[in-house]
Design a protein around this nucleic acid. Structure first.
Lengths: 210, 210, 210, 210
DNA sequence: TATGAATGAGATTTCATTCAT
DNA sequence: GATGAATGAAATCTCATTCAT
């Protein structure tokens, strides 16, 4: 994480660094992006950079952290999971996804940025010190669902979270690959993803006979 | 692909190159791995390398090709999808996964290696000339499932494939993260993943009321 | 062309790079010269080099450009070709050559450097962005001579230019190969080359009978 | 020059090496051509090569020598310069050029090959040990011309030779750049070049007044 | 605080040449 | 006589990082 002094510099300057970095990291990931290019595009000197940041990773961490923060804001106004009841669990989840997708459509860069994390080795992620809260809202949701008995408990929570996360990602990609559908599809896709998640997460489902 | 002479060199030397490369590519992917490191580890000179291979990609292709070949062998003895009927569809899928997991447990490197393909740009994959059949067995399976009416048809096939693939991956990771469970867990996990896939893929499932 | 910062570095350092480059390129041309050698001779690091220049070509372009600029200065004070009349055409040409030879005697490196351009492919020359005016002064001269009727028109202009250029080069070499003659020979040689050019270029000359 | 044993090998094999080398050197010159490529194209092993030749230069020398030899053959049937008289000097020169151009049109590769010599540094040319006789036929001609009094003696013979050589080259290029003119132009161009040479070489020419 | 010049290790690739067999 | 595997130095270029000012 950047030194404290980075928070006090000219906001416009701060913004130039961060947006240039976001743009580069979004396309090339941590290793593919060139710090030289980022700084050149931002018009920031090497010296200044290393006065604010420890190293390349530090900038990546900052940018990722910012993205994560914006992600979290999506859920800011939503009722806390503790207040959820069994009867409104799935509809509330659907509301969450609607907000999330709506945000994602307008902020594809943020999403792409976060996705570059998958190229980064676990040890490096560790070193990042990024708060994965944005990825954990789902986990907190599922935890509550288990308490309420609407989410299955026969699999470990973290496995369920990962499952739900990847289902979410697969369905999300479908949404973004056809942006021309616009937000018209948003409600339909949201319903579909929640239906899919119910399938995966409900305690007991019944299969038809063949 | 390497020049023919690479096939005729001292097998021990050949093995040193390939295993050093596999090890490096497995961790760093095509771009993250250093050819210098690979060669140093293998104890062969740069000159020798370029006597065998065209370029860095050529080595990557060779190593990936070998991995893919071993993958394919897993499905070699299994009945062709055309012969599947509705009644044995899911149990056959379960058999497939049992074989696959059994193989994966013993050949984690192969799996990790194949997974590095996702970091490679489509044009480069094209250039690789790797046979992607091993990656598409699931798609062919689902296609057959749709024909038989046991797999839902309300979502596009490629979306279903991606979904199934990511479910598979999530569950697989669970299996591999706890290798101490050994193969004792293999049957149970296999059953669980197929149950999970049925949830996602069956045309009609019934949810409980809350 | 080099980045702006190259213009502001320690002049002694700047000079070391340029003269080392000029020396190498002069002997080996663009491709024959080794960037490694140039940098070693100049005592600057590769990193520093690529901080100043884009690539090898960039340095070559810089060095050539400098040479061309010095060449052009030779013709700076001379009257424009448009003002030439038939009667002073040849004497003016002689004046030009006197200046040129005088310059060449003192700046043989510049001449040799410019001559390496002939080893460079047309596409690369294009890329150089070097102003080729210094090389075309002769052509403009001959064109004017044709207008005035003192230069033959029965051969294409470009053929005449090439002819004159190679005559010029052959005679020039004579001059430079015997530098001990010093500038004492300069007037004589200049007269000789112009006489030679008249032979080649005049519309009608009369040969003796044998 | 190649070891004697090179002369005794299978002629077909010998030819493969030489023509492959000629082709490569013709395009890239001594330094631009890759020995590896030459041998690969010829299907000759490295070992065999170095059994016949000392090094890369040795092959270049051989190929150049061969080209020179073919050049010389052009003049084989022509009367020796000693028999020339003043009255048939220029017409004999014209005959020579006609033969030469006729040969050049049909053997452009040979000409191009010989021209690569200009990229080679003087010290290397020295080392080549190539007999420059093909380049000196003109010199012997001019020498005889001086004896006969038809060629000017106010300039050194070597300067005249160089002059004539470059005039010849410039005119020759004109001929080859428009190959579509075919041999129809050959007589005309030959007349033109000899006219040009007379201008340059005659002892006394008369210029028109302006 | 801030600059930006300078570094040097490391990247991939090419090539003439050697030498054990 | 002949092979071709192996070499290693050299080529151009990139990049995160340091440091004197």
């Amino acid at each position: 994480m950047p030194r404290p002094r980075f928070d006090t510099i000219d906001p416009e300057r701060r913004h130039r660094i961060l947006s240039s970095a976001a743009e580069s990291f979004r396309h090339g990931g941590l290793h593919g992006a060139s710090l030289n290019d980022i700084l050149a595009a931002a018009g920031i000197s090497k010296g200044a950079y290393y006065y604010y940041f420890d190293d390349k990773m530090d900038l990546y961490a900052t940018v990722i952290d910012e993205a994560v923060r914006r992600f979290e804001a999506v859920f800011a106004g939503r009722p806390p999971v503790e207040e959820l009841s069994a009867s409104d669990f799935w509809s509330s989840l659907e509301d969450n996804y609607r907000s999330l997708f709506s945000f994602s459509v307008d902020n594809a860069e943020v999403v792409e940025l976060v996705q570059t994390l998958s190229d980064v080795s676990p040890e490096e992620v560790e070193q990042l010190g990024v708060d994965a809260r944005c990825l954990s809202w789902l986990q907190r949701y599922l935890e509550r669902g288990q308490e309420l008995g609407v989410v299955r408990s026969d699999l470990p929570l973290n496995v369920l979270t990962r499952l739900a996360g990847s289902v979410d990602k697969s369905m999300g990609r479908w949404l973004f690959e056809n942006p021309e559908d616009g937000i018209g599809m948003l409600d339909e896709r949201t319903a579909q993803i929640v239906e899919m998640l119910r399938r995966v997460l409900e305690a007991h489902v019944q299969f038809p006979d063949h």
